[in-house]
């Protein structure tokens, strides 16, 4: 309520003002794995397909396979141990909430925040469909059934344990003299690959930086 605003803030410095409920609602758009932050709403995969084809397919491809170097959204299941893993919603992402949250805040790229909450439910349902996580195009995703969906790779995330790696765990003094037997030999040249953009003949290699 606004009446409270005229009273001094209870903080130590008394700086700032209380946010109005409308202001918090306008910005508090995040969604958590446990469903906290999900808005009222619903949408089917079929509805999502129409929205997707209109707003998303130009970059992400008709089936989420991506155009050019835009992100791939579907497929890649079973590739995480491959030489070139394909990390998608279906193959890699642990939580469905992240799809809803991210599409709502940042997509379509170039016109963020232009979708309705129902649109985002429908798109999320369709992305499940493109990733073979639901098979029925009439599948409807809603605030109510949202947290019942588990993504396939959810259990494959572990907490950071870098400090236990042998090179970090070993705190002995590093070798200073005669640390390796033979003279150094070149095993790989950047100049052979020649992908540095300063050179005239730029060739894009596979992969990139996410």
């Amino acid at each position: 309520s606004l009446a409270a605003q005229d009273a001094p803030a209870a903080g130590k410095f008394g700086i700032g003002r209380e946010a109005t409920p409308e202001e918090v609602a306008a910005w508090d758009i995040d969604v958590r794995p446990d469903g906290l932050g999900l808005p009222e709403g619903r949408g089917t995969a079929a509805e999502g397909m129409a929205i997707y084809d209109e707003n998303c397919a130009s970059c992400h491809g008709d089936f989420g396979e991506a155009v050019d170097r835009w992100p791939v959204l579907a497929g890649g299941q079973g590739t995480l141990e491959n030489e070139r893993p394909e990390k998608t919603i279906g193959s890699y992402w642990p939580h469905l909430s992240t799809v809803y949250d991210y599409v709502r805040r940042a997509m379509p790229f170039g016109n963020a925040r232009s979708l309705s909450d129902d649109d985002v439910y429908a798109l999320t349902a369709y992305l499940l469909y493109l990733n073979d996580i639901v098979d029925d195009e009439d599948f409807e995703l809603s605030k109510e059934n949202f947290t019942s969906i588990k993504l396939p790779n959810a259990d494959n995330f572990i907490e950071d344990d870098r400090e236990s790696e042998p090179h970090y765990a070993d705190k002995s003094d590093p070798c200073m003299r005669d640390c390796k037997p033979d003279k150094a030999e070149v095993k790989m040249h950047a100049a052979v690959l020649d992908v540095t953009p300063e050179n005239a003949d730029d060739n894009a290699p596979q992969g990139g930086i996410d």
């Binding site: 606004l2 946010a19 109005t20 202001e23 306008a26 790229f109 170039g110 925040r113």
Partner: peptide
């Protein structure tokens, strides 16, 4: 005042367009 400041309640251009 019952709603809030427009710079918060309205989506600004920099929130939407790259």
């Amino acid at each position: 005042a019952s709603e809030g400041e427009e710079v918060i309640t309205e989506i600004q251009d920099w929130n939407r367009y790259p």
